[in-house]
């Protein structure tokens, strides 16, 4: 992308001038200010007109903040719990207890790895059945102690592999949907990166669904749709567009309740600012759901999910 290159060049130039400014006697500040203004304009121009495919790439950006980056900054005393009590632990879907605003909550967090080594452990953020069953176990704990449940979603999808099929990954996902449908405690899901199909939804049925501006949430990846519908691996751009997978679209479709703004260019450009925005929105919704009678929450949750869909009524034929 030529614009990105231009932004990088300008950023480098400004940095260079700033350093010069420090060392030399000459005052460069007006020149710096002029360039900074130009840079800001160029950034707005470039990043506010992102195509859906470009957003997919931002959602997958290797420097994008991951779940643990948010947990460290927003929650206190994160106390991770391990294992599904059946076959193992899953490092792509973490669960645990934490405090938010001085209240204990149950956390579900899909976590990608930074390094190749870490990604191997975390299966590139693709949870296996043991992850979903661990999540279900912790939902039962949330119910028992009336802890609100917060899940951070960031996965390309559930892990597609032989072992996952042997352990019935589809059944594990289905049972989480059922459990979250009736979980008698306030629930909030936040899509922070990739919302990969059933693998995301399996921890995403909630009273509030929030989404970062450049996160995506889709029934299938653009690559998958491209291969299946166009029978051509190269149509990912069109597929991304057609799938309506951005936060803006999902807000319109009623799937998402609020979009959390990101810094220009994406969350990774200013993680601190992103964390602050997410925290502000999360805390607001958290207070709301915690102050709503449970009966009301459950009835609203039912209505919300019961009403999803768009169809035409046929005149009698």
């Amino acid at each position: 992308m030529a614009e990105k290159r231009a932004i990088e060049l300008l950023e480098a130039k400004i940095q260079e001038l700033r350093e010069l400014n420090k060392m030399e006697e000459i005052d460069m500040s007006s020149e710096i200010a002029r360039l900074a203004e130009k840079l800001e304009a160029l950034k707005i121009d470039t990043y506010s007109n992102l195509s859906d495919w470009e957003r997919v790439k931002i959602a997958r950006h290797p420097e994008r903040p991951y779940a643990l980056d948010y947990i460290d900054k927003i929650f206190t005393d994160f106390y991770e719990l391990h294992g599904d009590r059946l076959i193992g632990d899953d490092r792509a879907l973490l669960v645990g207890l934490a405090q938010l605003q001085g209240k204990p909550v149950v956390l579900l967090a899909q976590q990608k790895g930074r390094s190749t080594e870490e990604n191997k452990q975390r299966y590139f953020g693709m949870p296996r059945p043991q992850g979903y069953r661990k999540a279900k176990r912790i939902m039962a704990l949330a119910e028992r102690f009336s802890f609100p449940l917060i899940s951070l979603i960031d996965t390309p999808g559930a892990y597609p592999g032989l072992e996952a099929e042997e352990f019935n990954i589809g059944g594990a996902i289905a049972n989480n949907l059922l459990a979250m449908a009736k979980l008698p405690t306030p629930t909030i899901a936040v899509i922070i990166g990739e919302g990969g199909s059933g693998g995301a939804l399996a921890v995403g049925v909630a009273d509030r669904v929030l989404m970062l501006e450049n996160a995506t949430y889709s029934v299938i990846s653009p690559e998958g749709a491209s291969a299946i519908l166009w029978k051509d691996k190269g149509k990912t751009r069109q597929a991304a567009q057609a799938l309506n997978l951005t936060a803006e679209h999902l807000l319109k479709l009623g799937v998402v309740d609020e979009v959390i703004p990101e810094p220009l260019g994406g969350a990774h450009k200013d993680p601190q600012k992103t964390v602050a925005s997410l925290k502000e929105v999360l805390i607001r919704h958290f207070a709301e759901v915690c102050n709503t009678p449970l009966e009301e929450l459950l009835s609203a949750r039912y209505k919300r999910y019961r009403s999803f869909g768009c169809y035409r009524t046929l005149s009698d034929r």
Binding site: M180, A181, L201, V219, L229, L245, G309
Partner: peptide
């Protein structure tokens, strides 16, 4: 899921699950 209805198809998984609970 029917890809042509995007996220709304995905939501049918949750929708059928909430009614199944009833």
């Amino acid at each position: 899921a029917r890809i042509q209805e995007g996220i709304l198809s995905l939501m049918q998984m949750a929708k059928t699950s909430v009614v199944r609970a009833r």
